[in-house]
Design a protein around this nucleic acid. Structure first.
Lengths: 343, 343
DNA sequence: GTGAAAGCGCTAACAA
DNA sequence: TTGTTAGCGCTTTCAC
């Protein structure tokens, strides 16, 4: 390898002013040219673009943002409520995040991700919004922060939340009709012959509460015994232990289990197998979410599908509309039963 | 509800200057007070802090960033290579991302997430770095962009990459010793009695190539037949079909399968079951990653564990050091065999 | 310990 | 069509 420097040591072009000097025009013209404004001579524009490319120049987004009072960044925040650490690694949130990244990129926005623990930082939402770094915010999951979100929604428009829709709420939300989903799940269990049914999961979070309520609706309508709530945490480690105990205590009495998430359902199937209970023979199981894992459990899991891609699309679409000043309604997505082998 | 306005309509305090006026000091003093600098009178500081709290004021980060030439944001970029869309939702990347978010937050940084498709945007890395929005960048996965990353590393210091370490490379990388991991996997298969072994997955990506090479090392050392590479895509849909075909074509000849990822291993187990092959009786299987799913397959998956939390910690630690001007070595993490029931 | 003033890099009037 | 100019909100010398 010859020792010569191939690359000429050009003066670094770091600012629009540097580039202007090189092009023999004013900074304003460079700004206009690079921003694709119409009022620039084609030749001038081409010269500037060529120069920019040659020197790998890109306008500083912080400066541009400061001046234009917009950042081109959307904040995505995940409040970690009840179980501090588990939710984030929850496959559902992660999948949603992936779709969100795509949707935002497609619309020319960057994504700033923040995980917060409202209990230790009650100011989490205002802090994010007030940072001046984001043009709008998407909140993934209401956790136990419904009231805080409502308050903020009164004075801050560009916010959309993934979660449960409650009659009369003031913040714009996108989410599956959890109550209907819960009803579908329980109806399936009942149709498969179960009449002593349990709900597996914490009924505290509002989404789960709605799923539980939907199941109760179905039970009432069918005239069977009330749904038995069996509380668990969401982290796999704790949940496994809790599920084992629940199955040992109530397994013999149960004919159907409606798990609040597919993750819990999968753990439950493992536990039922360990305790020699046949699925769907002895007990039928229905999950919620339709994550990839639902196809791979044994037997394959019957579950309630949430359309995550549609959800992400809705979140971004509504947020952009609000950014444009539109007043938007919430979007409630219909769940759908994915019928497989456990019920 | 009474109709009166409880909240006094205060003049909005949006800038440090507004707050200065209220406090009867100069903007400079407010800046110093809020930044926690030592040279401010304690009384003045407290008055300013109280006022800031009362009005929910937070300094604008874009302005601060522009002035100080740093943003407090770290970019995390995921290049989507061979299979365009699948990798992101890959549970492994998502888990790593979760840990990264925590590590960065702990260190006072925000996280800007970007997914890029290098094929359609060859300039992906420079564009991100040049945006002026980030102080440093973490690249998750080398994909097929090894050379591009090497080039950039020559002139841009605050970058750390998750991926495979190659002798003599110039970019700072954190990752598992994939070759050693591959050797562990194959050695386990061999120890379990398999001597006709296949590698399931694309050997193109450098990480996977190293895993394959490690398995070949073990095969050579044990004097058994060379490892048979069975190529697949990573997206579950395509992979299922390909795996089904591979199993049908080669299943009878095989005693061991080393899958490039747990996700592929899980699909493979499903397929083997469908085609009535007993695991580990007829064929033994080892995965890679030790994702949560590995505990839930049937039989539970023997796999090679990557310590994702340690990886995230290393990435952030090295990046912060580089930001501080230190020259850092790459970090190669030791994989570990998680012995379960499939081999 | 505090104020005044300059300026980070960019954009958008307003002129020319 | 282009140049000039005045800031966006903040930090940081440099005086006092």
């Amino acid at each position: 390898m010859p020792s010569g420097d191939d690359k000429p040591m050009r003066t670094a072009v770091r600012t629009i002013t540097d580039l202007a000097r090189l092009a023999g025009v004013s900074p304003g013209t460079v700004s206009r040219a690079l921003a694709g404004k119409s009022l620039v001579n084609t030749q001038t524009r081409q010269k500037i673009e060529a120069l920019a490319r040659e020197h790998g120049f890109r306008p500083n987004q912080m400066a541009s943002g400061l001046r234009r009072q917009k950042t081109g960044v959307i904040g995505v925040v995940i409040p970690l409520g009840h179980d501090i650490r588990q939710q984030i690694s929850d496959s559902f949130f992660m999948t949603l995040l992936g779709f969100l990244a795509d949707e935002l990129t497609t619309n020319g926005y960057d994504l700033m991700l923040r995980r917060v623990v409202p209990e230790t930082d009650p100011d989490w939402l205002d802090r994010f919004i007030g940072s001046g770094m984001i043009d709008g915010v998407i909140v993934i999951g209401q956790s136990d922060q419904f009231d805080r979100i409502e308050e903020v929604a009164d004075s801050y428009r560009p916010m959309v939340v993934w979660g449960n829709h409650t009659e009369g709420q003031r913040h714009c939300v996108v989410g599956t009709d959890n109550r209907l989903g819960g009803r579908l799940a329980a109806e399936r269990l009942i149709a498969a012959g179960a009449s002593r049914i349990a709900f597996l999961g914490d009924t505290g979070p509002i989404e789960f509460a709605a799923r539980f309520a939907g199941a109760e609706d179905a039970a009432r309508k069918a005239g069977i015994a009330p749904i038995l709530p069996l509380s668990t945490h969401l982290s796999p480690d704790r949940a496994s232990i809790e599920i084992a105990a629940h199955v040992a205590a109530h397994g013999a009495d149960l004919e159907g289990i409606f798990a609040a998430t597919d993750t819990l359902a999968a753990l439950c199937l493992t536990e039922l197998r360990k305790q020699k209970m046949a699925v769907p023979g002895d007990v039928k199981v229905v999950g919620f979410d339709d994550l990839p894992i639902a196809r791979q459990t044994l037997p394959a899991l019957t579950t309630v599908r949430q359309d995550i891609a549609a959800g992400a699309h809705g979140l971004v679409d509504l947020l952009l509309r609000r950014l444009a000043g539109e007043a938007t309604e919430s979007l409630v997505l219909p769940p759908e039963l994915a019928l497989r082998d456990t019920a």
